[in-house]
Every structure is written in structure tokens, then in C-alpha cells.
Computed example of a mutant assay.
Amino acid sequence: MNKLAKFAAVGLGAVTASVVLAQPAFAVNFIRDIGDGTVRYTDDTNQMCLQADNTFGTAWVEVAVSRQSGSGSPIVIRDDNVGHPGATCRVLNVLENATYQAEYRSYWEGRSTLIRGVFHFTT
């Protein structure tokens, strides 16, 4: 292999490695079942939507979002299936590439129990 071909091969390898290593962070979009409803997060718009299941009887879901570090007041979003169809959405004022904790509660009167849980997500 001549010098020019070696130089081109090394240069192409360096460019390929830099493109692979410098990939942008992927958006974290998710839909999650939280007992008696769902929570959906869209990273591009920082929007979180909750929707209680449309079942016989009253159902509601609630999520309290806070920084995993514990700083700041939690952002609370709540949705129920009484009086309005569809989801309740809110744009979250979040930091990029930060980890958040979402504590959720959900209730359906047909079962008459409260479901609680926690999940984490990174923006």
C-alpha cells in the first residue's frame, strides 16, 4: 500500500470514529402504564401527559416529578376520568441531561385500592 492510500485509510478511520463517538444524545420519549392510567413524556417539548383509564367508575392518576438530587419543589400533575375525556398535559421546566424521579399514585373505585410507585427518567 502506498503512502497516499495509507494516509487516506487512517483519515477515513479517524473520521468514522469521531462520527460514532460524537453522536447526539437521544431524546427520551416514553409511555408508561401506572396502574389505572398512563403517563407519556415527550423530550422534544418537555411535555408530560397523564390519562386515567376510561373505565366504569371513577379513576384518577397523579404524578409528582422532582429532581433526583432532591432540589426544588415537585411538579404535580393529576388526571381523572370524570367530566373530561383525554389527557391532562403540562410542560415541565426541566434541565437537559438531568435525572428526575416520578412518584405516582393511581386509583380506581371498582377496586377501591391505591396503587403507588416510583420510576426515574433522564431528559
Rank of each mutant, 00 (worst) to 15 (best):
95 L>Y: 07
59 A>K: 02
81 N>C: 05
98 A>M: 12
100 Y>N: 11
92 L>H: 09
109 E>T: 03
81 N>L: 06
58 T>F: 14
106 S>I: 09
90 R>P: 01
81 N>G: 04
108 W>P: 02
74 P>T: 10
76 V>F: 12
79 D>P: 01
89 C>Q: 00
100 Y>L: 12
82 V>Y: 09
87 A>P: 15
102 A>I: 02
63 V>M: 05
89 C>L: 06
58 T>V: 09
60 W>S: 12
56 F>A: 11
92 L>D: 10
65 V>L: 13
73 S>E: 11
56 F>W: 04
67 R>A: 14
85 P>C: 09
73 S>D: 14
74 P>V: 10
86 G>C: 06
107 Y>L: 04
60 W>I: 02
63 V>G: 05
77 I>A: 01
62 E>Y: 00
101 Q>I: 12
100 Y>P: 01
107 Y>M: 03
70 G>H: 02
68 Q>P: 00
97 N>D: 15
99 T>P: 03
103 E>D: 14
95 L>A: 11
81 N>E: 08
86 G>W: 00
74 P>K: 09
101 Q>N: 07
86 G>M: 01
78 R>D: 02
98 A>T: 14
108 W>H: 15
98 A>F: 11
98 A>N: 10
68 Q>T: 13
61 V>K: 09
72 G>R: 12
78 R>I: 09
111 R>M: 10
